[in-house]
Design a protein around this nucleic acid. Structure first.
Length: 256
DNA sequence: ATGGCAATGTTTCATTGA
């Protein structure tokens, strides 16, 4: 299974690029974040023409997640949100595909350390950790994939001194990320040797992409049976190039 | 010293993102 996570920063704007990317990369399942589109307006037909069935949970303007599943595969037991956590914001969709439970997440940004949104981010992560623990009991083959809005350690930051203690890098956020890992899922990217300074997000400003001033905040975490099957995990930085890119690049994981 | 981009809707600016 070829499994992808990609924050597209508006599926409306990005649809042509997404469809081109699907054709070039032929993934089996794609977890999308920041679709920023109401369910009634989701581009079901265009994606069907591209060979993918879509399941989605969206809202106007902000947030929104979706799963794209290649024709011939079924998305079963689709669920939305976090059990026991009331949230207006559409940030989670999950399904079982070919025996793999796939949880697509868009973790809150947090805006600034100490803000109300930061508190919400940490609360949200705490609830997701409990949800993950419960889900793993029934689904030992589990992947949680998405935009975590956390750079887990300094290797994931272009300038650790600049970012120290700031949003995405603060110790409470990193501790929240380690709580996910402590539930028994591995950061697939770190299962392999990787080129240094590999990132998944670059600011649109200040020539950040050509200067490679990025962060690695998009992740695919795998439970032990899937980590054993994982043959590669990489970030397609080419998808950040060209006209009207998302500010995030896709993470691509292959499972034998 | 600061902001510098992009997307959205509240649209000719404000808000959010990261």
């Amino acid at each position: 299974m070829k499994l992808v996570s990609w924050n597209v920063n508006s599926l409306n704007i990005r649809l042509p690029r997404v469809i081109d990317w699907l054709a070039a990369n032929a993934p089996d399942v794609v977890c999308l974040q920041e679709t920023k589109i109401e369910d009634a307006k989701f581009p079901i037909a265009a994606l069907a023409d591209a060979g993918y069935a879509a399941r989605f949970s969206g809202q106007k303007s902000y947030n929104g997640v979706a799963l794209l599943v290649r024709n011939g595969l079924d998305a079963r037991d689709v669920t939305h949100g976090i059990d026991g956590f009331v949230d207006e914001q559409k940030r989670v969709i999950a399904a079982t595909v070919d025996g793999v439970r796939i949880v697509c997440v868009y973790v809150p940004n947090g805006q600034a350390v100490g803000s109300d949104k930061y508190r919400y981010k940490l609360d949200w992560c705490h609830a997701m950790t409990a949800h993950l623990r419960a889900t793993l009991i029934h689904h030992p083959a589990l992947a949680i994939a998405g935009d975590f809005n956390v750079a887990p350690d300094d290797r994931d930051v272009h300038d650790p001194a600049l970012w120290e203690g700031r949003i995405h890098c603060s110790e409470p956020e990193r501790a929240a990320f380690r709580e996910f890992i402590a539930r028994g899922v591995a950061d697939s990217f770190r299962l392999f040797d990787q080129p240094p300074k590999t990132f998944s997000w670059w600011d649109y400003r200040q020539l950040a992409f050509p200067k490679n001033h990025g962060l690695r905040i998009d992740h695919v975490l795998l439970s032990p049976p899937l980590a054993q099957r994982c043959t590669s995990s990489r970030i397609d930085r080419n998808a950040r190039k060209g006209v009207k890119p998302s500010d995030h690049a896709p993470v691509i994981v292959e499972l034998a």
